[in-house]
């Protein structure tokens, strides 16, 4: 099984190894990291018969191309794209058998941002603090893929999941994020809270795995001064001095000093991960469960 590996032929704009991340170390300054569209990563793992915590590849907008050294079952999901094996089209969102030495090409995202590629057996690079995820904030985990990188794969589990094709949500034309207000909503004017929960923002092209940045109306603070650094959660909507909300994604810093106006429901973050720059964003205030 020593040749269970894939070579990266085209790494694309940004392709990283991701699993479910390394939660539980925030008190040491270690971000949780992990696949941004966690349901998509879980689905492609299921399609190839992997455990849910197997490491997959997360591409960004431009896809990637791989050449397996042995026959391997793969599944591609998340952002829809054209998938080919040696130039011939194959299924997206379904298990596909790729022969040893063939070229698997994951095309640019037709819509959405991040495509997930599961390889049967999972990518088994060396884990760091229990996770193989690349953390772009702190530099933990494997470096982003480059052309020529060779990724080892684990043994294939049999039998595979008996799923031929699985429905997946389309990337959002408009991103609607449910938000519970606080803990620092009292740092903002009533007008800012009204603007936040009613106006439309746009996804900024400066967004990344650390945060979904927005463009739009500035949120005005009700008080001056600095907030002492405090712990941050996934989905926190932090408002830097310029007033444009930033939604914290998987690689977010564990502490921060800008006030958090609200927190996005975890279930809405997969859609946030797939919202391309320019997508309209609305924040809808909801009651805490």
């Amino acid at each position: 099984m020593s040749d269970r590996a894939v070579s990266v032929v085209r790494a694309g704009a940004l392709t990283t190894v991701q699993d479910r991340g390394r939660p539980g170390h925030a008190h040491l300054g270690v971000p949780r990291s992990g696949a941004l569209d966690a349901p998509a990563a879980a689905l492609v793992n299921r399609l190839v018969g992997n455990r849910p915590d197997a490491a997959v590849l997360e591409t960004t907008l431009t896809g990637c191309a791989l050449r397996p050294r042995s026959d391997v079952t793969v599944a591609v999901g998340g952002a829809p794209c054209r998938v080919t094996v040696d130039g011939g089209p194959v299924a997206w969102g379904a298990p596909v058998r790729v022969p040893a030495g063939a070229l698997l090409d994951i095309g640019p995202a037709v819509s959405g941002v991040r495509t997930y590629v599961a390889l049967a057996g999972g990518v088994i690079v060396e884990p760091v603090l229990g996770s193989r995820s690349t953390d772009l904030l702190s530099g933990l985990g494997p470096a982003p893929l480059t052309d020529g990188t060779v990724l080892p794969l684990g043994p294939e589990r049999v039998p595979h999941a008996r799923v031929d094709v699985a429905p997946q949500p389309a990337p959002p034309a408009e991103l609607v994020l449910r938000v519970t207000l606080g803990p620092r909503d009292d740092w903002f004017t009533q007008e800012a809270l009204r603007v936040f929960a009613s106006r439309t923002f746009l996804v900024s092209s400066a967004s990344n795995r650390i945060g979904l940045r927005t463009e739009g109306p500035a949120l005005e603070r009700a008080r001056d001064g600095e907030l002492a650094s405090e712990g941050m959660v996934l989905g926190a909507v932090q408002v830097p001095p310029a007033g444009r909300p930033v939604v914290f994604l998987a690689d977010h810093p564990t502490t921060g000093g800008y006030p958090v106006i609200g927190v996005v429901r975890t279930g809405d973050l997969a859609a946030a991960a797939q919202a391309a720059p320019g997508t309209p964003v609305r924040f809808v205030a909801v009651r805490r469960r």
Partner: peptide, 15 residues
Amino acid sequence: AREIVPAARTVLLDG
């Protein structure tokens, strides 16, 4: 709690 994160004048309990 999954995370207990102390900071300057706060403690965050997550999960």
